[in-house]
């Protein structure tokens, strides 16, 4: 007697609602950032100069490109081009990995300089710079976690596509992971100028 119930729009709407919660989650950190910035403008700019702008810019480009490849993956599956869709999926995962590797080098360089939450070096630099780096680590850390989750999700969806569980007329899962992936990108779009580019 069970009636198959399928509601793609509902599924997408649910995903959007979930993305709202993600935005609010990050906004907590952005509120703290805004307040600290208004309290310590000079220290923030000094601290920002310690970050490597090249890492930041390259990672931005990587993430934007990965967003493109995954958006293309959705179009591909809609047009029934499974092979292409899969290629786009792998490309996206590859870019995510590049992003994380970059992040790893960036963080290790900073940690090697003794800059990490709770460190002595940081404490000597005074409260403004400390608060910048605390925020930086927490925000990019949380974001990095989301990249990791997103990449895993994409891998799962890609496997399901291989198995034909995601097809050209049943692809909500792919679409929803794309929404998630774009959110990760969105957050980075704000993180990048706010942390790397303060003059």
């Amino acid at each position: 007697m069970t009636i198959e119930h399928r509601d793609d729009t509902g599924a997408r709407f649910g995903m959007w609602l979930f993305l709202y919660t993600e935005v609010i989650l990050f906004s907590g950190l952005f509120i703290l950032y805004a307040i600290s910035l208004s309290k310590f403008p000079e220290q923030f700019s000094a601290a920002s100069h310690k970050l490597n702008i090249y890492f930041g810019t390259v990672n931005t480009l990587v993430l934007l490109t990965s967003s493109l490849t995954f958006a293309l993956a959705v179009s591909a599956i809609q047009m029934g081009r499974k092979k292409q869709c899969l290629r786009f999926c792998w490309a996206t995962i590859g870019l995510a990995v590049v992003f994380l590797i970059n992040k790893y080098f960036e963080w290790s360089a900073e940690i090697a300089h003794g800059i990490y939450p709770g460190s002595e070096t940081l404490a000597e630099m005074g409260p403004g710079i400390t608060s910048f780096f605390n925020l930086y680590y927490l925000t990019t850390g949380l974001h990095g976690l989301h990249v990791l989750i997103g990449a895993t999700l994409i891998a799962v969806v890609a496997v399901l596509t291989v198995k034909d569980r995601v097809t050209s007329d049943r692809y909500t899962l792919l679409e929803n992971s794309a929404l998630y992936w774009h959110l990760v990108d969105l957050v980075w779009i704000f993180v990048f100028p706010l942390y790397y580019l303060i003059l």
Binding site: I24, P117, G118, N134
Partner: peptide, 30 residues
């Protein structure tokens, strides 16, 4: 719309306890 704010706040308390990321600690600019 409101619950995620609790989530991040609690995460920050946890981080402060575990890592010493003092976002709520005046000595560390929080």
């Amino acid at each position: 719309l409101a619950t995620p704010m609790l989530a991040i706040t609690l995460v920050l308390v946890l981080m402060e306890r575990v890592l010493g990321a003092g976002l709520f600690d005046a000595a560390k600019g929080g």
